[in-house]
Each structure stands twice: as structure tokens, then as C-alpha cells.
Design a protein around this nucleic acid. Sequence first.
DNA 1: CTACCTGCAAAAGGTTTGCATAGCC
DNA 2: GGCTATGCAAACCTTTTGCAGGTAG
Lengths: 125, 125
Amino acid sequence: MKNSKQRNLILDTIINNPVHPIAKEVYEMAREKLPNISLGTVYRNLRALTESCLIRRIAVSDGSDRYDGRLDRHFHLICSGCGRVEDVEPDKYYDLAKYAEAHTDYKVEEIDIIMRGYCSECQGK
Amino acid sequence: MKNSKQRNLILDTIINNPVHPIAKEVYEMAREKLPNISLGTVYRNLRALTESCLIRRIAVSDGSDRYDGRLDRHFHLICSGCGRVEDVEPDKYYDLAKYAEAHTDYKVEEIDIIMRGYCSECQGK
DNA sequence: CTACCTGCAAAAGGTTTGCATAGCC
DNA sequence: GGCTATGCAAACCTTTTGCAGGTAG
């Protein structure tokens, strides 16, 4: 993969923003620094970066996929009230992949855990 | 919600098929019994059934969403080799939602756990 | 009879792709 | 210089929606 300032910017944007942006948001943030960047380039690079395991794609089932710059194991909590997506540290005493491998004949490579609920602010409403 | 033979058929199709079909597959299966059913009706009913919690939507991030007729807690293992989606029974001794609620201030309502890996047949290849 | 549901087709997202040009190595 | 990446726009695919007619209650 050849170097490009567009891809570097996209990667930085995702890594330095804990907001788990969708493609369009990445595009808008990137455009602040590189006004000519195109949406096609953003999509192409999101795909390339995901395939190279430099970022991760999060399937949220309501609208567009989100992108996450964290590669270590953790999971996501999505507030059904305000839409915010938060990282949660995994339980260091419990390994879900091991559980799955012990109970099936699969070799697990990747886990996505998404929980939906209400954050403290939205619980009152 | 008023009764309709289209919706009943769609619900039956999903409940009696452990394949976690996407919308188009539901449409094709339903068309065998009701050749005039339209794709729009399938989508409308998948949405209605999901919103009434009679089926569940599974976000798999590669292509279309899948639908699941099982409502009890369980998780999904997707084979990256052959694309098969399998149900896995949850660990009855460990409650991930409780863990999340204990470590955040969220009230968790729904959990989606998707693991990707290789089934026994695809591990050899 | 009224409100909801259907089939059809068009529209609306979101994402990918073809092409000519620009930029890295 | 060659090969990859970009910008732009068109194409693509999935899902939603407007409309006129049909059906359940």
C-alpha cells in the first residue's frame, strides 16, 4: 500500500476521535483539513484500512457502519436515546471467545459485542 | 396490527428456518407459497415484526441485515469461510449485561454478540 | 365503512466503481 | 517511469415510500 496524505488523514481522524464516526462524518472531518478530499476516497480508504486491520468496522444495524480506531478487545454500548456510542472495557476475568470455542467447533477470530440501552442522561426522559 | 396472510407467511418463514435469512431470501422463500408477494411488503413486514419484537434483526456488517426468529438470549457465530450463521447458547453462569451495568451507568436493554471465525469444515482450507 | 395492508414502481440512502489525472517510490 | 491513489460522477444495491386498489374487523 502506497503512502497518501488522504489515507493518513483518514486514519488520524478516526484514531484521534473517540466518536466512532460513520463514513460521512469522517468525510466531513477530513474536509476541514483537506477540502478537496472526495467521499469516494474516504470510502475506498475506510475499506482498505479495515482490511489491513488498522481500524475496525462496527455494524450497528441502524443506518451506516461506524469505524473505530481501537484495535484491542472491548465492546460498545449504544444509547437508544441520544445515539452516543461508548467503549466498555472487557471483563478481564472472563473470555467469551474461549467459551464459544469450548462449546462449538469453531475457531473464533473476531468478536463484536454491541449493547443497546439508555445512558444516565437519557434514563430520566 | 391487522392480520394479513403475507405477514403470517413471513413470520412463519423466519421462525421455521434456522438460516437467519436476509430480506431477499425471505422474499424468495415466501414467493414459493405466495407468488405475488412483493419485496416492498416483505421489507415493510420485516420492519413491523422487528419493531413488535416478534423477530430480531441481526447486523452483520457485510451486506444486508439478517433476521432471526429466536427471541431468547443467544449469540451468533459466522463462518468467514462459508458464510453460515450458527446460534450459540449463552453461558448460563455469566451475564454480560450485568457486567456492563456494573461498570457503566447504562441501563442495558439488548445485546448483540457476533463472533466471526471458521467452522470445522472451513478450518482445513 | 373505515383503517390498515398490499403490489407496483419510483425514490432515497449508502457504497462501490470506471475513468482520466495526479502523486508516490 | 510505472503503478497506485485520487477526484468526480455514474452505477449499484438495499431499503423506504407514494399511490391506487384490496381486505380485515
